[in-house]
Design a protein around this nucleic acid. Sequence first.
DNA 1: AATGAATGAGGCTTCATTCAT
DNA 2: TATGAATGAAGCCTCATTCAT
Lengths: 189, 189, 189, 189
Amino acid sequence: MPRPSRWPEVMAAAAKVFRAKGYHGATLEDVADEVGMLKGSLYNYISSKEELLFSVVRPPAEQLLSEARALAAEVVPAPEKIARLARVHAGVLAEHFVYASVYVHEVAGLGRYPEWAAMDSEYVRLVRAVLAAGVAEGSLRTDLDLRTAPHVLIGALNWLTRWWDPDGPIGAAEMADRISGVFLDGVRA
Amino acid sequence: MPRPSRWPEVMAAAAKVFRAKGYHGATLEDVADEVGMLKGSLYNYISSKEELLFSVVRPPAEQLLSEARALAAEVVPAPEKIARLARVHAGVLAEHFVYASVYVHEVAGLGRYPEWAAMDSEYVRLVRAVLAAGVAEGSLRTDLDLRTAPHVLIGALNWLTRWWDPDGPIGAAEMADRISGVFLDGVRA
Amino acid sequence: MPRPSRWPEVMAAAAKVFRAKGYHGATLEDVADEVGMLKGSLYNYISSKEELLFSVVRPPAEQLLSEARALAAEVVPAPEKIARLARVHAGVLAEHFVYASVYVHEVAGLGRYPEWAAMDSEYVRLVRAVLAAGVAEGSLRTDLDLRTAPHVLIGALNWLTRWWDPDGPIGAAEMADRISGVFLDGVRA
Amino acid sequence: MPRPSRWPEVMAAAAKVFRAKGYHGATLEDVADEVGMLKGSLYNYISSKEELLFSVVRPPAEQLLSEARALAAEVVPAPEKIARLARVHAGVLAEHFVYASVYVHEVAGLGRYPEWAAMDSEYVRLVRAVLAAGVAEGSLRTDLDLRTAPHVLIGALNWLTRWWDPDGPIGAAEMADRISGVFLDGVRA
DNA sequence: AATGAATGAGGCTTCATTCAT
DNA sequence: TATGAATGAAGCCTCATTCAT
């Protein structure tokens, strides 16, 4: 597909509309209205509605995965890695908030699109590996359940797309620290 | 609406299909196929597709809210309340897994259906109140951010709908304890 | 596909419209108008426009081929076989005139639909075999070009769909005899 | 319309594409792709798709008609005229094969375009007149049906567009002779 | 209660055509 | 002359909904 001049506008409009109404609940006419063109004109930019979804969802997915891979490869104590992972995760969410919300709503963990299943589960495995290393090195609790724990962290972070306003008073780094703080040390006095 | 004999089958089919494809992505024909009737026959049970969604989503929503209200009213230390709240939450998820998944995917935190916004936010306030009481009574950390913390717990629990198999090896109570364990005491050694 | 009550009406309307405007030039709304229903209602009868084309075109194609096969298997002198083949061909055209016209316009010899190519070329081979047998038995000219001759007969017969009115003064048998008469004995005095 | 430098390429591409997919089945983008330009650029050459069809179809139609008129005016025995008419017809087909195929598929005998009906039927009348003269002069059979016979010859010739390769082993003159041979003298031994 | 069949609105997509550059 | 991008109409198809039986 060519990426003509108004491509970024089209992407932003699609992300906004998909987030507000859901992928299936949104129509291409909604998207076109948001851009200020006719629905047929969208086909200068895309080849199908589904391809538009993938275009919206790809940037945050790829960025999160590549940053997480890089981080996982570093040699750093697990607690610090977890804190930095939360920052990366929240940072990607904040940077591409609408796009990432669409990923979280429509793709993450749902197994609806085989194309994305591999990426999706690789991220879970990366987080699990970080936790496992922490248990091995003694910085995390020995009794930690490695099946559950990664999903707890990921769920808490992904759930940000349902209530957080990344342009509000709590920024991405601050938010990441709060979540990783609870995850690492709990809320008990 | 009359609720004739095959009403439970209809509900179960709708929940299953809505969970698999999403509300907008699912068609009434999908639901009818699942029940083993023609789509037109569904209108002996429902008055519209949206009413069917609400019927699917109401039982877990009402049960969770009423159990949470009852729990919140008890006089119990916050850490124990949190553990029991997690059990209630995971218990409702497990009991109505498909139905609850639809609630989580289509309703929770999205603000798409005004009818559900009040219930939805009341639950967050209940959890927040439990945490606030814990801070006040000294059983939870003083520096706990009460805007964020309820969403961390709720997010981790709701995210169960994306990966947990309630009929798998980890039962609801066990799962609730693991999640509330991490939430209360963290994962650090 | 189910074949509900108005299936024959749908077929007849489609054949009529496809013949008048060509398959691609005709719209499903044209067909629906002809039947007296809405275009969406057609999908109670068909699964796609192309399937409708195939349904229209199948009866004459299959009938012609099966009758031609039966005829080819008989033991009869070639000139008589040719005359009877022409009667079969013109008879199928007359019986399913609109449907057969669509076959001739949209399918025969065009190679546009792989599904039909085999049937299409089998018929040519059948005719060629009849002619070859005639040459072998001495009832047809020794210098007959077997590559060309079958197409001459088939072309003359198929061309009927462009000018003949099967409900006009010249009936199918009479017409077949005239064409096979020219083909067998020529027009020279 | 101006006829700028790449006009012949445009015509050739249109003929090729119209022949392969049919006029309505082909898109201007198909044509433009074949030329190697964008579809909008075609409007430097044409004013509408239909005009393009007419441009494609005009050369063979006019050439055949004018050559047939000239031939019909000569004073020559009917059998020879028929043989030469077949050569003219096959010659035009061969010279403009793709263009002529489009004429045969989309125009001949269909009555879809009033602009062409007169030319189309004039040709039939010319052939019929040749045959009628032959009957009158005694060189053709007295019992020849003059309604049918011209269409037999024309049909056999036009059907060449469905199976003949004019660049193959049998050239136009040879092919014309075979067809007129069958038409004049039949295939019987 | 269920079916068969229809409706009508609307969604995705295509495509002839236009136009500023 | 060609391009890039748009328009607008229309086409195929889907689907929630209705209704006579």
